[in-house]
Design a protein around this nucleic acid. Structure first.
Lengths: 308, 308
DNA sequence: ATGAAAGCGCTAACAG
DNA sequence: CTGTTAGCGCTTTCAT
């Protein structure tokens, strides 16, 4: 009898235990897909990220999965390869199989997000979208702290190694870094857009040096690390000749030499928060809920005083 | 009419296109859960790993997801936190929702795997189980090559930094390393079991030094890197005083200094192969199919001649 | 080549 | 409190 599983409280304890033991001996397990058909709740969540192998995402995925399963949900994970078109396809493909989708660091337009939210409940991570539940990191404040840190070290000529087109985070960083530089009376040259990868960071090395900057803020740690590698190959001393700051504080950043100064973003907390927002009942959910997670500048060894 | 989607070839092209355009205008998408109920095929795959945030797994997950979706399958990802009990629970929880489960680096017993395979088709990665489709890396050969490399550098006193209990890979490495050391007339001290983490590698530093070994092979790169960090903190020069070899060739390993000498394992290929094995029709599937992927020793900067 | 009907495993609603 | 019934969206079988 299905009530034993779906509404245990209004069934006779005797009957219940009898059913339970029979079920046990038969190895019976309720079929969630069949249940979903009638209840409309699948107890599945979709998680869409730009690149599973980008070290930024695994801690987020892990935290989301853990939080989801604690609430008896399973997690679909899908990878868009940084392709906005793939994002749309994936949301639609998963829509019928999940109770909601976590869209992490989307590259698609806000208009498209608006369209997709009508097909399936959406929570967006790393993007603020009007009227949509979202989890963002306060990267603006982080970028500001990074610029102030560099200016405090005597740097006047700064460069920003920009991230991918379509990234809300990238826009926030640029806006905030430009404002902070202006306020401090420093020059800031903006480079980009670039893919958020180590290879792109390395490839941008010469462009960075051509700006004449003595300090660089990168869109993320991966690009900063790529830049560091290329700088090392060219015999440029960090932080002696050039200071480098990243954003994210991925595991790598404290393991490389010099240890990377970076803005730490709470990725695991973001994963948990996103799951919580998706799963909290609609009546509690304010449609414009926006959770902003704090960031923190971690000063390590890749930044130093202006050599000039 | 459902035939339009499930058996397009035996429907009148006119009718078909008419149905299709109507469906399109209604935004209709077939419900896979309902389809699964009757066909018995969910078009979903479960992927169970010990730790999503362990850098070894993301490339495997990414490759598996990509391969699965190319074949119109979605991927559930779950994390066991290195807990064998969680492995069992997860397989059972996913069993009804998937057409098969990819069990990566399982820590559970072979007996339990035998039991679970009766509930859901299983493909095992990083473990050879009799009569079960499996994808393994030839770590035995990799460990042998590592030992020979170290002996070739003049090292006679070696240590093996062992991995987790229950790991087939760990047993393979130990067996092969011991055989290779014996053959070369070198001493090999085996340490462990340890968690396969950077922290555990660092924590084992003093134990490693106490063995008097001049060269160490670690269960994986993460442990080797932890060891390197601890060695650095203690002012021990690598490879001047101690040589270190890892296994896996995770992205980190070529980014740290000294760059880690390691045995590269084809993790992406393993993810793809596992999906392929699961999805190939049962009639083609030999029950004892075992795919063995080759490994390769990558000599970088963490190994050098015996100082004595 | 197409329409109609049965039924996958489950829950909801309704009787008892 | 418990047995029965209808039907979720789809595919399959059986008619036509």
């Amino acid at each position: 009898m299905s009530r034993t599983f779906s509404a245990p409280h209004l069934v006779n304890p005797d009957t219940r235990s009898r059913v339970l033991s029979t079920a046990e001996s038969l190895g019976y397990r309720p079929n969630r897909a069949a249940r979903a058909l009638i209840t409309g709740r699948t107890h599945n969540i979709g998680l869409i990220v730009a690149d599973i192998a980008n070290p930024f995402f695994p801690p987020l995925i892990k935290a989301a999965e853990s939080q989801a399963r604690q609430r008896d949900y399973h997690l679909f994970v899908a990878d868009t390869n940084e392709d906005p078109i793939m994002e749309e396809q994936l949301v639609q493909a998963l829509a019928k199989q999940v109770d909601g989708v976590l869209l992490c660091s989307p590259r698609m337009s806000n208009d498209l997000i608006e369209k997709l939210r009508r097909e399936v409940p959406l929570v967006v991570v790393n993007r603020a979208v009007d009227g949509l539940p979202a989890v963002v990191m306060d990267v603006a404040n982080g970028a500001k702290a990074a610029i102030e840190h560099l200016v405090g070290l005597g740097h006047h000529d700064l460069a920003l190694l920009g991230g991918p087109r379509g990234s809300w985070t990238n826009r926030e960083i640029r806006r905030s870094a430009m404002a902070a530089a202006k306020l401090a009376g420093a020059n800031l040259t903006v480079l980009g857009p670039h893919q958020p990868t180590e290879a792109a960071g390395a490839a941008a090395c010469d462009a960075v040096r051509a700006t004449g900057a003595t300090a660089v803020l990168a869109y993320n740690d991966l690009m900063a690390i790529g830049l560091l590698e290329a700088l090392h190959d060219r015999g440029v001393d960090v932080p002696g000749e050039l200071s480098v700051v990243g954003i994210d504080d991925i595991m790598l950043s404290r393991l490389i030499r010099p240890k990377l100064t970076t803005v730490s973003t709470p990725t695991a907390a973001a994963g948990r928060a996103a799951v919580d927002m998706l799963l909290q009942h609609d009546d509690e959910r304010r449609t414009n809920a926006l959770v902003t997670l704090q960031t923190e500048l971690i000063v390590r060894d890749s930044t130093g005083p202006n050599p000039h």
